[in-house]
Simulated assay, not measured.
Amino acid sequence: MNAIDNRDNFPSFLYSAPETDSARLPFLLHAVRMGCGFQESFFQINRDNSYPYFTVHFLFDGCGLFHIAGENYLLKKGDAFIIPAGEAHSYSNRSEEPLGLIWIELSVPGCQELSSYFHLHRIYTIDVSHTEAPLGRLISILHNRKKGVFSTPFELSGLYYTFLMELLDAAQTQVSPQLPELLTAALYYIGHHFTEDISIGQLADYLHVSHTYLTRIFRKYMGTTPIKYLNLKRLEYACFLLDSSILTCEQIAERIGMYDASHFNRFFSQQLGMPPSVYRSRKGPSSPPPAT
């Protein structure tokens, strides 16, 4: 978490590679674009399967949603999300606060096999407990690119390769997240009770801490507030139920702890920019939801 907690690591920056001729050596890794900065609140990026790049993003602030290969992923501060070339996807910030992203977009020639590996093994996200090494490498690459200190395409390609190998190692390494016990207990409680009509006041009372202190811990380690994290968990599960079941909106409202279909409809529309019925019409239900 050291790299994430130091805001000096994330100055606003955008780099786009100049046009190169066709004689460029195809086995060298080549970054098309890379950048760092805040995305505005309530934004959404949608791309179809013609997107030709292997792209990696890290969240350095905020909390967002990522959709790829028919699955929705809830992202928090420090997590990485990975877009293999040729995969339709979307990602969004459904918070009133900006979402901090640092990212790199690599051309497929030179990393085709790695892109295919992540696709075949359905590796689309990496938890914050695994991301410090590749994130630190990407921060270094961006800082040096901004200063213009690289001398040859071979040097750059070597740094990109090292970054990708650290990313692959992070994806394959199982490490328990090093989070404060209080936050671990809070996440466990939310994970097991977000389908109930709970409040953050109840959560704070359960943990024997003040609402203010709990919010401070969440902001530091999760990049968002407890109530926004709770609502994203509910939204993530609502999307799953709309995709995979024939439950009515009234039933889904109950399943996610709202108990009011009109409130659920307003909540969903505010978060995703469309009512639940429109979201469901884009992909028909296929199987019953898991037991809760």
Results as ranks from 00 to 15, higher is better:
residue 35 G to K: 01
residue 36 C to A: 12
residue 36 C to W: 00
residue 37 G to K: 02
residue 37 G to M: 04
residue 38 F to K: 01
residue 40 E to I: 12
residue 42 F to K: 05
residue 43 F to M: 14
residue 43 F to G: 14
residue 43 F to N: 15
residue 43 F to L: 14
residue 43 F to R: 07
residue 44 Q to S: 09
residue 44 Q to M: 14
residue 44 Q to R: 15
residue 45 I to W: 11
residue 45 I to E: 11
residue 46 N to T: 12
residue 46 N to E: 14
residue 46 N to R: 08
residue 47 R to H: 08
residue 48 D to K: 07
residue 48 D to C: 07
residue 49 N to P: 03
residue 50 S to Q: 09
residue 51 Y to H: 07
residue 51 Y to L: 11
residue 52 P to T: 10
residue 52 P to A: 11
residue 55 T to I: 14
residue 56 V to R: 01
residue 57 H to K: 08
residue 57 H to L: 06
residue 58 F to M: 06
residue 59 L to K: 03
residue 61 D to T: 09
residue 61 D to V: 04
residue 62 G to T: 02
residue 62 G to W: 00
residue 62 G to N: 02
residue 62 G to M: 01
residue 63 C to Q: 06
residue 63 C to E: 05
residue 64 G to V: 00
residue 65 L to H: 02
residue 65 L to G: 03
residue 65 L to Y: 02
residue 65 L to I: 08
residue 65 L to F: 06
residue 66 F to M: 06
residue 66 F to C: 05
residue 66 F to V: 05
residue 68 I to R: 01
residue 69 A to V: 08
residue 69 A to P: 10
residue 70 G to L: 11
residue 70 G to V: 10
residue 70 G to N: 11
residue 71 E to C: 10
residue 71 E to P: 12
residue 73 Y to V: 09
residue 74 L to Y: 08
residue 74 L to H: 13
residue 74 L to F: 10
residue 75 L to M: 11
residue 75 L to A: 02
residue 76 K to H: 07
residue 76 K to M: 13
residue 78 G to W: 01
residue 78 G to N: 07
residue 78 G to I: 02
residue 78 G to M: 04
residue 78 G to F: 02
residue 79 D to V: 09
residue 79 D to P: 08
residue 79 D to Y: 09
residue 80 A to E: 02
residue 80 A to Y: 02
residue 81 F to P: 00
residue 81 F to I: 06
residue 82 I to K: 04
residue 83 I to Q: 04
residue 83 I to K: 03
residue 84 P to V: 12
residue 84 P to E: 11
residue 84 P to F: 05
residue 84 P to T: 13
residue 85 A to K: 06
residue 85 A to T: 10
residue 86 G to T: 12
residue 86 G to P: 04
residue 86 G to K: 09
residue 86 G to H: 08
residue 88 A to S: 07
residue 88 A to W: 05
residue 88 A to G: 09
residue 88 A to I: 14
residue 89 H to G: 03
residue 90 S to C: 15
residue 90 S to D: 09
residue 90 S to G: 14
residue 90 S to F: 15
residue 91 Y to G: 00
residue 92 S to Y: 03
residue 92 S to F: 04
residue 94 R to A: 07
residue 94 R to L: 11
residue 95 S to Q: 06
residue 96 E to Y: 13
residue 96 E to L: 12
residue 98 P to G: 12
residue 99 L to R: 00
residue 100 G to C: 09
residue 100 G to D: 05
residue 101 L to V: 07
residue 102 I to V: 11
residue 102 I to W: 00
residue 103 W to G: 00
residue 103 W to L: 03
residue 104 I to L: 12
residue 105 E to D: 13
residue 105 E to Q: 13
residue 105 E to W: 02
residue 106 L to I: 14
residue 106 L to M: 08
residue 107 S to Q: 15
residue 107 S to T: 15
residue 107 S to P: 04
residue 108 V to M: 08
residue 110 G to K: 03
residue 111 C to V: 13
residue 111 C to F: 03
residue 112 Q to L: 15
residue 112 Q to K: 15
residue 112 Q to I: 15
residue 114 L to Q: 14
residue 114 L to A: 09
residue 115 S to G: 07
residue 116 S to G: 11
residue 116 S to M: 07
residue 116 S to A: 14
residue 117 Y to D: 04
residue 117 Y to N: 04
residue 118 F to P: 00
residue 119 H to S: 15
residue 119 H to I: 15
residue 120 L to T: 13
residue 120 L to K: 10
residue 120 L to H: 15
residue 120 L to A: 09
residue 123 I to G: 05
residue 124 Y to N: 04
residue 124 Y to S: 04
residue 124 Y to W: 14
residue 125 T to V: 10
residue 126 I to Y: 01
residue 127 D to M: 07
residue 127 D to V: 10
residue 128 V to T: 14
